[in-house]
Write a protein that binds this DNA or RNA. Structure first.
Lengths: 205, 205
DNA sequence: ACTTAAACCGACCGCTGGGTCGGTCAGCAT
DNA sequence: ATGCTGACCGACCCAGCGGTCGGTTTAAGT
């Protein structure tokens, strides 16, 4: 195989495995040796491609997590006219339990932020950026929805976006005690109730 | 001072400082040496009273966190007839930024659960218990409120409780990027919107 | 074929931090 | 006085893990 390609393949293997392990065990609890052993790679291979564990993590966040969040939670917001429906559907899709290895990307942001806040300011800045990207896009869409008559005029779009994201991030912690499928169903149900309270009274379902 | 009393004092100092540091830096990021140095105590003193770091943490969770959660978030639910008002007020009070050292106890549960899940099953079991105590009490009160006509009959109380707690836990992550006072205000505002959607239509504000 | 450099190996380093252990000292009982 | 016990000290131990570095293999250029 070409060297260039081989390098790419190795980096990819490292990143996907890294994402997997980081998501499962958190940043501090994850050690490189475990990842390397599972991939049959050496310390040298790792430090040939990345200059530190932190660098590695940031690379993963920017290249895998950010893109997934965007594709799953940001981009779908603008394809529909009614922002509340768009949000509901995007979350529905994001919560769909895919193949076994599929990760629920949105959640990880919250987890990592919780773990790295305070310490590791560099890293958490990147995480915050991603969350904020989601938030500002949602606010934008909500405001647009207000103009189009999908949302009552007195509603505070910033507050709504923060509330939606909060509940989404928090659900992870709750889901650990419950059946995921049921939790998803319940969550979306309550989200719909909440959304109904945001609509102009004449349109309320 | 009597020996017995002196021991209690030391344990108390350790626990309160420990709670403080754990809440700020998380479990893994907290090291005993820092705590000990700040209290001018030695390793020996610590391991005379606690058999491990984990033991120490569990002791704190069971003795300080659980009680505070109960007093702040569980007990107040039953003093009022309308559960939705009771919940709003308890969260309002829980989110009130008290004295500088006051901790927002509810949040920590979510943080620790997020950090310790997977690994450290013993510990996270205790944390889950506390969360569940909150949840089942809330469900109970919601069901009672339904009978009393404060909540619409078709509402799924389990789902509502999970949704409330989720949003509460998740708000911590969001609040890190925002002004806490404004975040609290926005949060309660949206909570009220949501609650309005749960009331019987005739009573809806 | 020879050179070069990237990809990779794995032994090693050093720090961090949980945990140990022998010792000291104060207070209390006999 | 004597002995005992519980509170506490702090030097030390050691495992884990991030990071280093000299060496080896392999693919590509000439």
């Amino acid at each position: 195989m070409e060297k260039h390609l081989k390098s790419k393949v190795t980096i990819n293997r490292l990143c996907y495995k890294g994402l997997d392990v980081f998501a499962q065990k958190g940043y501090h609890n994850t050690n490189l040796n475990d990842i390397l052993r599972e991939l049959c790679l050496s310390k040298g291979a790792f430090y040939h491609h990345f200059k530190s564990k932190e660098d590695f993590f940031v690379y993963i966040v920017q290249n895998l997590v950010a893109q997934k969040i965007y594709a799953l939670l940001v981009e779908p917001l603008s394809v529909q006219e009614d922002p509340l429906s768009a949000i509901t559907e995007s979350l529905d899709r994001a919560l769909e339990p895919g193949k076994s290895n599929e990760l629920i990307y949105g959640f990880m942001l919250g987890d990592f932020l919780t773990e790295l806040d305070g310490k590791q300011e560099q890293v958490s800045a990147y995480l915050k950026d991603i969350l904020q990207m989601w938030e500002v896009n949602m606010i934008e869409m909500l405001k647009k929805g207000k103009l189009d008559g999908h949302i009552a005029r007195h509603i505070d779009c910033e507050g709504v976006a923060a509330y939606i994201i909060s509940s989404y991030l928090g659900m992870r912690t709750m889901m650990m005690n419950h059946n995921p499928k049921q939790a998803k169903y319940q969550y979306l149900q309550q989200l719909r109730h909440y959304f109904n309270s945001l609509r102009p009274t004449a349109v309320r379902a």
